[in-house]
Amino acid sequence: MSLSDATLTPPAARGPTPAQWAGGAILLLVLGFAWGAPLLVPADPLRQDLMRGLAGPDAAAPLGYDHLGRSLMARLAAALRLSLSIAGVAVLLAGVLGTGLGVLAAWRGGWVDRALVLLADSVLALPGLLMVLIIGVIISNTPLAFAIGLTLVLWIEFFRLTRATAARLLAAPGVQASRLLGFGPGYVFRRHLWPDLAPMLLTVAAFGAATAIMLIAALGFVSVGIRAPRPELGQMMVELLPYYREAPMALFLPVIAIFLTILALNLLAQGRRP
């Protein structure tokens, strides 16, 4: 029996959930480390000092040294900056592209809608990893190739959700009422679509960023990603794996960094359920 005494149900809660607060806080920490570390302890992530291979922490390298005597803190921060920047650019581009096309498809309907859906479904059929790898061969600048490849992968989810949500909202009486009252498409987007789209887009963006960061690291791990000596999380793990017994902490650092980043993004994605 649904509760027919409707006035007893409180209005829906608004604002971020506790999980989102936690995710946001962890993400800020990660961002703070990535961009703050070089300010606190300036060091070149590429500078080798073989005498210090796998040495413990000191003032110049508070997290110790890797097998080639490079500062782990500097390398970790540089690797995080790279991954987060690529993920950020790709999510932004994919968000604008996917949301725009999604609204267009829902608004215009007809063959525009059908063609865009067919395109999205077809791109979806190509595994994202494959797409990124192929673009990586076509464009020789790896970070740029990753950003473009990831954009081509990530726009689909933005498109699909935006299209479904917008189609539902556009068919609702509220939009018809606003049009009758003389409001234009801009108003309909701002007042009717955006309030429902925004929290959903945040979720898709957070998941998309997590996907991007995992993909970059996975490709680095199997040695077809960002090329050495430029530091990258997955590649750092492969490099440090042989020295696991001598310096376990050196291997754990990139592992913890990626775990915290993905966890933060996943938590951020947990919006309110209707």
Partner: peptide, 22 residues
């Protein structure tokens, strides 16, 4: 599942190798 999903598959492989094999 939130914890597991924050572990990318290559990392899961790495963890299993380190734990079970090494």
């Amino acid at each position: 599942s939130s914890g597991l999903r924050a572990v990318p598959q290559f990392l899961m492989g790495l963890i299993l190798i380190v734990l079970v094999s090494i």
